[in-house]
Design a protein around this nucleic acid. Sequence first.
DNA 1: CATTTCAGCTAACAAGTGTACGCTGAATTT
DNA 2: AAATTCAGCGTACACTTGTTAGCTGAAATG
Lengths: 202, 202
Amino acid sequence: MSGVRAQQKEKTRHALIQAALKHLCAENSFSSLSLREVAREAGIAPTSFYRHFQNMDELGLTLVDEGGLALRQLLRQSRQRIANGGSIIEVSVHTFMDYITRNKNIFRLMLQEQAGTTQELRLAIAREIAHFTNELRDFLIVERKTDERIAKAQSDAIVRIVFSAGADALDLTGDDLRKLTDQTILQVRMIARGALSLHNTN
Amino acid sequence: MSGVRAQQKEKTRHALIQAALKHLCAENSFSSLSLREVAREAGIAPTSFYRHFQNMDELGLTLVDEGGLALRQLLRQSRQRIANGGSIIEVSVHTFMDYITRNKNIFRLMLQEQAGTTQELRLAIAREIAHFTNELRDFLIVERKTDERIAKAQSDAIVRIVFSAGADALDLTGDDLRKLTDQTILQVRMIARGALSLHNTN
DNA sequence: CATTTCAGCTAACAAGTGTACGCTGAATTT
DNA sequence: AAATTCAGCGTACACTTGTTAGCTGAAATG
């Protein structure tokens, strides 16, 4: 029942995932990563790859799903920090930037394949982002009593800006990163204020 | 002096550019486009490609530059329409969406390679976007007397949102496209109002 | 008219790719 | 203890890729 065999299989599956992630950087996109490369890095024969994934796209899908999961967990932490008092905007943006700088490769994958070649991957990424947007929208409606149409546009705008800034954050460190983060916070504040203003006048 | 020869060369150079553009769609990214494919489509031998570009990256750079040029020209038109009266926000967003739907492939290229593998291309695209942002920022400072820091954040936010929405617009038509455009206008309004609000209180 | 230039060609290469096929041996099941 | 399963392997095949080297013939130059 312990499953020595299944355990070993899970292990090399993980090795494949790690191998793929390792090769993702500014110079190597996921779509330019070959099955053979991944297999080599993971220490198995190319043909053994098929024991774990039907093709590279399926591996990519797995990466996106795992990345999305990590993101959502972080968001939950973020919401807790807000519940304990603290600016929702500041905390959220900082949380997001932290996530990105600590999971650069997964985020890069999402950025690259968001406009990439494989429809399935594109959809998966769109789904992850929608997840993000919807949670924020619901928060705005329930906690902030925001009008639905406004809340939808507002959450969508915020997510777009934060993701876009996140893309730029990948190549920054230190003071530049701090500046970008501050500007992003300012921008999200703009949206929040603007939404409130439109809310009250319409 | 007429240059029958130079004329012919320019012609096949154009054919190469068109061939590359033709193959850009949701299913074929620029980075997955091979030199041989482009040459085949343009009707020349693979090796003749080198008579025009040193490598594929140089072709990509050319595409980005040409796309950026078209975009800037459109922006100028847009600004004229504003001078003749009309909401700057509405006109600008509509102009942008028009550009995208009419130049889908160039815009796709920019989206795909914005987070792509070739540094030179990435930088070129970043430059084009910065161009966009800077012109808007200057407009805000000069015409709208906006504080510089606010103007910078505001223009940056607007460009981020419009580009991001543009990416989604690529796959939409008819009513969906109209809805997205309307929402984008609303979002830009939010930012404008929020910027004004922050401007007056700080 | 003689010479030079040069866009485009063919042939060829080494390297890398995805994937089909069938084998092996250890883990698992019966 | 015998039978089955199956993760991983090696071999092999048919392609595609970028790039080199050298030729050709028409256009440009003097």
